[in-house]
Nucleic acid binder design. Structure first.
Lengths: 339, 339
DNA sequence: CTGAAAGCGCTTACAG
DNA sequence: CTGAAAGCGCTTACAG
């Protein structure tokens, strides 16, 4: 049933070595034999067996992408960017998601090991020790928005603190003094950093940092909706809400409108991520722009650099800068986005 | 550097056959040797080489997922459902996306061939001939929302016609007689079927089917935005817009509000897909609910059935039913969703 | 219960 | 330019 290199070789009256050379464009082969082999291979519908090839070359032509829970537009964008780059480098993409505790991540790491030439990890729960314990030293790894700050790994991190700080500062500059935050998932890296940025901006302006203004969330619309409901019943109502991502901001706006509270007139709302849809909200959602699909591209390019350069590869820890995007939801209509 | 089955065998004073048996839980091994092997394997951080294993078993424990362009929330949901099921069956997921013409798809098919035990294909551009030409007869395939209606393939298709028909009928029953449609991507399967459903409902009600009411789109918010702008300048303005998906409906609503046209009072708007965010729009977006993440689950479950049952597997062509979800954007507030 | 050995389908020095 | 052969790291009948 299945056709192998041997079948092609026999029919073409050459050795399997020659067929191999033709398919790998390696070594010298006459045009004539090359052509004959290629024709017969096509007739027979021969494709080299990937496992056999991997076994002898110890390369898999595959890279892994480890993701947390997939939600919303964000991960579509990341995967799009990643896949695009992987295809460009003629590799394949093994995706594994929804690892939300240490055991699941360790299992995922072990499973990837031996199946991929390199690994991009986007996981809020990972630490350097776990990585070292479960991955061979030789496997190239790029950490995308992980907690790990360790110069022994390549990493790309969104400037969460800076972005949140900028947005909150912007609100303060426009006379908001009581600003609530809807936090991201507990223990999540982005969540904690965005919270830090928020607090830092308040402190800088000598505004009170109070737990009464910090509401739990988990990055979903529903969480934003619930948090806003709680904010609405506060005795001394905030004039602005900073949601730790756009999905929650959208949920929050929905809750406010349901209660007939005007955005931005009565309460200003701002988000984070600048997912594509935010622009089409009414009012348009002010947000902190993250180059999402570019994240996937950058991570994979770094990974391929590591794979190619081997021991000569120099690891870097990069911060991806964000950008303030002011739309209507925060009530401040400006043409230029200065802070 | 890398540790193989041989290293484990030597250190444990057993043959590689025994180590293999321990790792595959096959054949009889004394508890004592099993334990010894396992301990040593852990110390050595041994993981079986996936390629070697695949080569001798001719199984890859990997399934492929072929997707079109990734956009919005839709594909995050599909991938989430797929990955979840794949993990449950202890397999891995090879994802390949953004194949938008025949050549790219053929290349992707060939590349998958030999790397996966089965394949889920979600591609509007595929046809039976291309599949047969590029895939071995023996490879299990499940078509997810593809054009191909061929009993030689397992397939799952969204009831696009029925869903669109139901939504438009609903609008008609509430006295809309001039209903515009924003179409999906040219030549796209979903796009064409939703258009058919729209037309069928109009005809059934003896309403005119006119090209003047059919506007091009490509499933993005931007396309919905642009289409709505065109609709607004129509001499005889429609009272309702049926967008072929939610993203376009959201874009359209954005355009209408920008022009200070009230939704639903002046123009009703409805979408298709019922992506999670639609519920949080203001006004809440009326839509046709598609069980999106379930799509991924169902497709993969069918695939694993095919993989396991081999020649005994009976192919089926299933239609996934949709459900009308009436919210505020279409202006008809009802508790029950009867049509 | 355990081992020796063939075989999976390739690649790649090494000869010629 | 081409071929014979070793080797990649496993699994799996077949013996014992």
């Amino acid at each position: 049933m299945k056709v192998t290199i041997k079948d092609v070789a026999e029919r073409a009256n050459v050795s399997i070595a020659t067929v191999s050379r033709v398919f790998n464009k390696s070594g010298p082969v006459t045009d004539q034999t090359r052509h004959r082999v290629l024709t017969i291979a096509r007739d027979l519908r021969y494709t080299p067996n990937a496992s056999a090839r991997s076994l002898s070359t110890s390369k898999t032509d595959t890279v892994g992408l480890l993701l947390p829970d997939l939600y919303g537009e964000f991960f579509s964008e990341v995967i799009r960017g990643a896949d695009q780059t992987v295809q460009q480098y003629h590799h394949h993409l093994l995706v594994s998601s929804s690892h939300n505790n240490r055991n699941e991540i360790e299992a995922a790491l072990r499973v990837m090991r031996g199946r991929v030439d390199g690994l991009v990890i986007m996981s809020p729960h990972i630490d350097a020790a776990t990585l070292n314990a479960n991955l061979p030293k030789s496997l190239p790894v790029v950490l995308l928005n992980c907690y790990v700050k360790d110069s022994s790994f390549d990493s790309l991190n969104i400037d969460n603190i800076g972005g949140a700080h900028q947005m909150v500062k912007h609100l303060i500059q426009h006379n908001h003094t009581r600003i609530a935050i809807i936090k991201g998932t507990e223990q999540n890296y982005d969540a904690e950093e965005r919270l830090s940025g928020y607090r830092a901006a308040l402190r800088e302006a000598n505004l009170e940092v109070s737990a009464d203004l910090e509401f739990p969330g988990d990055f979903t619309e529903e969480a934003g909706f619930q948090a806003a409901k709680k904010i609405l019943v506060l005795p001394h109502r905030p004039t602005a809400i900073f949601a730790s991502n756009d999905s929650m901001a959208i949920g929050a706006i929905s809750a406010l409108r349901e209660s007939e509270v005007q955005v931005p007139e009565e309460i200003a709302v701002a988000g984070f991520d600048d997912i594509p849809i935010s622009k089409y909200m009414k009012p348009g959602l002010s947000s902190v722009h993250v180059p999402i699909s570019n994240l996937g591209v950058l991570a994979l390019e770094r990974l391929f650099a590591a794979v190619t350069e081997k021991d000569n590869h120099i690891k870097k820890q990069d911060i991806i800068t964000t950008e303030l995007v002011v739309r209507e939801s925060c009530g401040i209509h400006e043409t230029n986005n200065d802070d």
